[in-house]
Simulated scan of single mutants.
Amino acid sequence: MEKGLFKKGTMVEACFDEPGFRGAWFTATVLRPPRRDKKVYLEFRTFVTEEGGSTTVIDVRPAPPREDHRTFKMSEEVDAFHDDSWWEGVITKIHDNDRFSVYFRASKEELVFPACNLRLHREWINGSWIPPFEEIDNSIVWRPKGNKMLKPAGSSTKYSSKSKVKFEKGAQLEISSDEEGYIGAWFVVTYVKKAENNYLVEHKHFTTDDGTELLKEEVDAQHMRPLPPEILMVNHFKRLEEVDAWYKDVWWVGTVSKVLDNSMYTVYFRNSKEELEFVHSDLRLHQDWIDGQWIRASHL
């Protein structure tokens, strides 16, 4: 815990290890900075537990500086202010009057927000914001009216994120999991058949406990997608580029934090807060399957 960053009265953001709140950042004020026990005591503006209840904060970071004005682009990674906290999403549509559709991977839903309720998504890595704020100064072209945080207009509007592709027996797919420890991971599977309200798939790289056959499981449509189209990277990946990394027979969503020599890269994984090194051939550009089409995150 960086004591100098968390003085008494400092505004910070914190996230919780609670179902339904993973991936959300809540605004809080430091009541007591970290001491020998390395604990920091916070007072939240909007998050309230039940009487006698408690919850666990898994990460604390400084509150990012507010950008008074900027524009947003298609496929750009953003944080959206919704239900009193900031949620990570990706812009999928630009409307008139500075309104944007944002897709949330965690909840598989899409909502409409005014620009004043959005900010560019950044990660706090090793004591600095990635991407740095100075890198986006040239793109600032929009200024909201006032600083009040608004509830998202049209927040009741939801769009289907289910796959629009019908899979045939033997087709290669990728599936995701909501199981703890596997958020942000995509498993390669083979489609077997329709199974009541779900679908039966067979893993390509995982077997049953006794190792005698490939593992089969049932998944719903929201956790299935086709194999993403291959995008050849002849030269190299760029710093801050969002990628999928092949690790332990699974694709994991991460961000290139360092470009090393000999076609090596350091990749940061926001869910586990880890950095690992990969060769060029074990990485691919990250793409999202949204409303039946592949969307690439933009790169500054």
Rank of each mutant, 00 (worst) to 15 (best):
M1K: 06
E2L: 05
V12Q: 04
E13K: 10
R22M: 10
K38P: 01
K39I: 03
V40N: 00
Y41S: 01
E43C: 04
F44R: 01
F44D: 07
E50Y: 08
E51D: 09
G52A: 09
V57N: 04
R61Q: 12
T71D: 02
V78H: 06
H82D: 09
D83E: 13
S85L: 09
W87G: 00
W87E: 03
E88Y: 07
V90C: 09
I91E: 03
I94C: 15
N97D: 12
N97V: 10
D98I: 06
D98N: 08
V102E: 01
F104C: 04
S107E: 14
E109C: 10
A115Q: 12
I125F: 05
N126G: 05
G127Q: 10
S128Y: 11
W129A: 01
P131Q: 06
F133V: 11
I136L: 05
I136H: 09
D137S: 12
S139F: 14
K145M: 11
N147W: 12
K151S: 15
P152G: 02
S160T: 07
S163A: 11
S163W: 14
K166I: 15
G170V: 13
A171T: 14
Q172M: 15
L173W: 12
S176N: 11
S177E: 13
Y182P: 00
G184P: 12
A185E: 08
F187G: 05
V189M: 06
T190F: 01
E196I: 05
N198F: 02
N198V: 00
Y199Q: 05
F206W: 11
F206C: 03
F206G: 03
D209M: 13
T212H: 04
K216G: 07
E218L: 15
E218I: 13
D220G: 11
H223Y: 12
P226I: 13
N235T: 07
H236T: 08
L240E: 14
E242N: 07
V243K: 06
K248A: 09
K248D: 07
V250N: 01
W251H: 01
W251P: 02
L260C: 09
Y268H: 08
N271A: 10
S272P: 05
E274N: 11
E274V: 05
E277C: 11
E277Y: 00
S281E: 12
R284T: 05
R284C: 03
L285Q: 02
H286V: 06
I290K: 06
I290L: 04
Q293E: 14
A297Y: 00
L300N: 08
